[in-house]
Design a protein around this nucleic acid. Structure first.
Lengths: 195, 195
DNA sequence: GATTGAACTGAACACCCGTTCAGATAGAAC
DNA sequence: GTTCTATCTGAACGGGTGTTCAGTTCAATC
C-alpha cells in the first residue's frame, strides 16, 4: 500500500523530469551527466534509476510526451473555417506554445540526433504529424486560391522555421508582449501566403 | 627547415579540421571524442595536440573562421541599389551559402552553447554583425517606405530563421535545383516585406 | 652515413561516465 | 514495538574522457 505523508515518489519523479529538461535545454543531452541531474533534484545518481531505465529513455520519454502534448494542444486549439482563419489559429497557437514551453521545444529540436535510431523514428513521426497539420492548411488554401505559394512543401518548412525562430530570442518580460508578438508573426505569415 | 616530400603537417592540419567539422555536425561537440576525430584522420589522439591546444579551441577556431568567411563572402556578394535589390542579393547569397556549407552553418548554430563564455562572446559578436547586415537593409527599406514591417527587429529574426530553415531539409540532388530554391525563398522573403 | 627535427605513437595520468546493487533509512501498518 | 516496504545511499564496476610526454620514426640535410 502506498504511503501518504512520507511518500516522495510523486515528488521525485516529476522533479527528475523537470531537472533533466532544464539541464538538457541549457547544456545539451550529451553534456549533462546523470549525477548532475540527481544533484539538481537533491538525490544521488542511483536513485534516478527508480524512475527511468536509463538516460536515453529519460530523453525519449520527455520528447515523446512533449510532442504528444503539443499535438493534443493543437487539436484543441484548431478551428474550422477558411484556410486563412485556420492558418491564423495555427500561427497564434504555435507562437504562444513556443513562448510558454521554450525548453520543451528547444530540446525537441536540438536533441533529435541523440536519440537511438528506433527512438528517433518514433519522435520524427510525431514531428511529421505536426508539420502535416500546417501542410494541410497550406494545401487547402492553395487549392482554393486563397494562398499564393511557389512550393507548398518549402512554404511549410519556411513558415515553421520562421515561427520557431521566436524561441531563440523571446525572453519573459522583454520589449514585446505575447499578444503583440503573436500579432507580428501573424502579420508576417499572412503576407508570406497572400495571393 | 621544413621538409618537402615527407611533410604531412600541411595535410594533417586541414584534415583534422575537416574531420572535426564533419563529426561535430553529425553528432555534436560533446558527443565526439578526440580519439574519434583522430581515427577519422588516421592518426592517434596525441597527434591532434600538435595542431590545436585543446578541444575547445578546435571548436572555437572552427566557428570563428567559418563566421569570418561567411561575413567576407557577403561583403563580396553585397551590392549597391534599392533596399529591395539589396535584400534580393542577401537572400540569394544566404540560401546559396547555407546549401553549400551546411556543416559549417549547422555547427555555428548548434554548438554555441558548448563554447566557453569568453569564446561565446566572440562568436556571438560575429553573428550579430551578420544579423546587423540584414537589419540594415530592412531598416533602409522601412525608412524609404519600400518595405512594410510591423517590427524591424522581429522581422530580421524571422527572415533569418526562415532562410536558415533551408539547411534542415535541403539535400544534394533533391527535388529542387539550387536556383529554384533561391527563387522560392526570394519570393517568400519579398512577400514578407512587401509594402 | 651520421645528424637533425618535424610528425607521430603508446602508454600513462587523473578524472568522469552510465549503471548496478547490497544495504541503510524511515514512515506506514499491524 | 515489531514488521514491512518504498525510497534512497554509497561504493563499486568497466570503460571512456581530455591531455601530456618520453620515445620512435624517417625524410631531408650535410
Amino acid at each position: 500500500m502506498a504511503r501518504k505523508t512520507g511518500s516522495h515518489a510523486e515528488i521525485t519523479g516529476p522533479a527528475i523530469r523537470a531537472a533533466a529538461l532544464r539541464l538538457f535545454a541549457r547544456s545539451g543531452y550529451a553534456a549533462v551527466s546523470m549525477r548532475e541531474i540527481a544533484a539538481e533534484v537533491g538525490v544521488r545518481a542511483g536513485a534516478l534509476y527508480l524512475y527511468t531505465p536509463d538516460k536515453q529513455t529519460l530523453l525519449y520519454d520527455m520528447m515523446r510526451d512533449n510532442m504528444q502534448r503539443a499535438l493534443e494542444a493543437w487539436q484543441l486549439a484548431k478551428i474550422d473555417g477558411t484556410p486563412m482563419q485556420q492558418l491564423e489559429a495555427f500561427v497564434r497557437f504555435h507562437v504562444n506554445y513556443h513562448v510558454d514551453r521554450s525548453d520543451e521545444i528547444f530540446v525537441a529540436y536540438m536533441e533529435l540526433r541523440n536519440l537511438t535510431p528506433e527512438n528517433f523514428e518514433q519522435i520524427e513521426a510525431l514531428r511529421r504529424d505536426y508539420e502535416g497539420e500546417v501542410e494541410c492548411i497550406l494545401t487547402d488554401g492553395y487549392m482554393s486560391g486563397d494562398f499564393k505559394l511557389a512550393d507548398i512543401r518549402v512554404s511549410t518548412m519556411a513558415l515553421i522555421a520562421m515561427l520557431n525562430g521566436v524561441m531563440t530570442w523571446y525572453r519573459e518580460g522583454g520589449r514585446l508582449s505575447r499578444v503583440r508578438i503573436q500579432q507580428i508573426y501573424w502579420d508576417m505569415a499572412k503576407q508570406m501566403v497572400q495571393a
